[in-house]
């Protein structure tokens, strides 16, 4: 590949890529900017917005007025909780399917995936009624279980594709070397699987954090995560652009950072290993 491309082409590509990248990113940039403005400045024309003063006022106000910390904490508990729960169930399952495949393993995997294809509205009514009757509406525990279940197939699949890449011969070697199932998992499998488990965890936290069907349907206040809290700005009173921006910036910042770390795994996780 030691070929020189013309410098003209390179400059055109550079300018085009940066322009398009900037335009796509712009809405996010814009809410970050607005979050540091006063409400009065936030609704001005773009140029005036840029030249107006900066303030942290909106961040303080979001916290004071709306108990932002609670919703943030709910998002953390729900996404991390459901992810850990899913991992506890999925790691043994994926391990078994990857290393002790049977005749029906493939069918089993496909079936698990098919549960992910069921649209949420198909079970909205019974889930809502079940939650109501069990007193689980607006509870973190109930929602954690639902988020665990809807992401379980993806977690199993991702782990499966990672485990599949660990050569079976290595585990057989360990068995020949006298490793018990316990030491096989402890000394061989876990160290080799940790990167895969970590990226699975990362992607699943992102998906759970941004989940906006069940979180909107099954919570109102006490267990409401950020998706629901932000949705409450859809019918606000008075000026709210700066506050919405501040709330949104805080809601997406942690996930943007996690997401940038998991770019590569993202492709694989979201395509069930079909594209690597």
């Amino acid at each position: 590949m030691a070929r020189k491309s013309s410098s003209l082409k390179t400059s055109v590509v550079t300018v085009a890529a940066w322009t398009i990248g900037f335009l796509i990113f712009f809405p996010i940039l814009w809410i970050i900017i607005l979050s540091f403005k006063t409400e009065g400045d936030a609704i001005k024309a773009p140029l005036e917005v840029l030249t107006s003063g900066w303030t942290l006022h909106s961040y303080a106000e979001v916290q004071e007025r709306s108990n932002y910390a609670l919703h943030f904490w709910n998002s953390v508990v729900l996404s991390v909780g459901s992810t850990l729960l899913a991992l506890v169930i999925a790691v043994p399952a994926a391990w078994a399917m990857a290393f002790v495949p049977g005749k029906r393993t493939k069918d089993l995997l496909m079936w698990m995936l098919s549960t992910k294809m069921m649209p949420a509205v198909g079970v909205l009514v019974p889930m809502y009624l079940l939650f109501r009757d069990l007193g689980l509406l607006d509870s973190r525990a109930g929602l954690t279980v639902v988020l665990t279940l809807i992401n379980l197939p993806i977690v199993i699949w991702m782990l499966y594709t990672y485990f599949k890449e660990i050569p079976g011969e290595i585990l057989e070697a360990a068995r020949m070397d006298g490793a018990t199932l316990r030491s096989e998992i402890l000394y061989i499998l876990t160290p080799m699987a940790v990167p895969g488990i970590a990226s699975t965890m990362l992607l699943n936290i992102i998906l759970a954090w941004n989940e906006a069907f069940w979180t909107l349907q099954l919570t109102t206040k006490a267990a409401a995560p950020l998706t629901q809290f932000i949705a409450s700005y859809s019918s606000p009173e008075g000026l709210f652009y700066a506050k919405l921006s501040a709330a949104s910036t805080m809601a997406i910042a942690p996930i943007l950072i996690l997401g940038w770390f998991s770019q590569k795994q993202l492709v694989r996780g979201l395509t069930f290993g079909a594209v690597k």
Binding site: I31, N210, I230, S234, S245, I255
Partner: peptide
């Protein structure tokens, strides 16, 4: 920058586009 919008939760992206 190009990947970023994917990580924005649906309620945020919808409200930001709607209002801002």
């Amino acid at each position: 920058m190009v990947i970023a919008p994917f990580f924005v939760m649906p309620t945020v992206s919808a409200l930001v586009w709607k209002n801002m």
